[in-house]
Amino acid sequence: MALSIRSMLRRQIEQREFSRWRYRAATVEDTRLSLLRRQVLQAQRLRAELDQLIQVADSRLAFPAVGANGFDLPQDTDWRWRPALWRGPLPRPGVTAVTSGEELGEEVKLFHDCAAPEVTLRQMRNHSENDLAPFGLRMEVFGFTGSFLSLAVDLPAEAIAGLRRRHLVRVAAHFDLERPIEIFVRLNIKHGPNTEELVEPLPGSGPESMVEFDLAYSEINEKRIEKAWVDIIFGDPAMNAVALRDLTFSRRPRAEL
């Protein structure tokens, strides 16, 4: 009973507060200036608090939840990974006038050879029910006169632990394009003094874009693998926007024949 009374009183107080601000907005043309200045100051302070509440609430209520790490993978997958940029908020969510080698997070870098690039990178919040990743990456390219533009993602040590030539390495991306362009994925595996490079085109767009690298066709020395990274290469990127809503990596052993 006491809880019901408190809830009713709280609703009445909220309604009175809302009605007061609605009345102030309706009579703003006739309010004397000295009073209006105080109301504006109060409104600005209130708006700052409301904006903070809405921003945090949107992040908590949006789908998928922060920290969600769902995957759609074959059952025989023995390693999977989604970079931190797509899992949770970054301390620095955006970069403008991106120079070559600029980092966004600890695992993602942008490389290019444009002298005066007009490129921005920004972490975005995913909201669609089709999204498995809580966050995405939006890249906007305006003026660009270079010959290449690529995102480099360093793979963790777990990716190369036990890596063999019988493995298939999968790179899956969910992206939206402002206009269609060619996108290529290059898997780089450093083994001793050599680096193996395998390149495949990334087909289409949307949640089903995926390439697999069959390491049977590589010449990697399994005993000397030191590191691996992936380059996502964008062809003719000028005057375009790319929303990379998800990016995942995984590997599985090839079925024995």
Results as ranks from 00 to 15, higher is better:
residue 110 L to S: 09
residue 111 F to E: 09
residue 112 H to G: 03
residue 113 D to F: 07
residue 114 C to A: 13
residue 116 A to I: 06
residue 117 P to T: 03
residue 119 V to E: 03
residue 120 T to P: 02
residue 124 M to D: 00
residue 127 H to D: 11
residue 128 S to F: 06
residue 129 E to P: 01
residue 131 D to C: 13
residue 134 P to K: 08
residue 136 G to M: 03
residue 144 F to H: 07
residue 145 T to L: 14
residue 146 G to A: 08
residue 148 F to L: 06
residue 149 L to M: 15
residue 149 L to K: 04
residue 152 A to Q: 14
residue 153 V to Y: 11
residue 159 A to K: 03
residue 161 A to I: 00
residue 163 L to E: 02
residue 166 R to G: 10
residue 166 R to W: 01
residue 168 L to K: 04
residue 174 H to P: 00
residue 175 F to L: 14
residue 177 L to M: 06
residue 177 L to F: 04
residue 179 R to D: 06
residue 179 R to M: 04
residue 180 P to R: 13
residue 181 I to L: 15
residue 182 E to M: 11
residue 183 I to K: 12
residue 190 K to N: 09
residue 191 H to F: 04
residue 193 P to L: 12
residue 194 N to H: 11
residue 197 E to L: 12
residue 199 V to I: 14
residue 199 V to A: 05
residue 201 P to F: 07
residue 207 P to L: 04
residue 208 E to G: 00
residue 208 E to L: 05
residue 209 S to L: 06
residue 209 S to C: 06
residue 209 S to N: 02
residue 211 V to R: 00
residue 213 F to D: 08
residue 219 E to N: 11
residue 220 I to S: 06
residue 220 I to K: 02
residue 224 R to S: 10
residue 229 W to D: 12
residue 229 W to Y: 15
residue 230 V to W: 08
residue 233 I to F: 12
residue 234 F to Y: 13
residue 234 F to S: 05
residue 236 D to N: 14
residue 236 D to H: 12
residue 236 D to R: 13
residue 238 A to R: 13
residue 240 N to G: 08
residue 243 A to G: 03
residue 247 L to G: 10
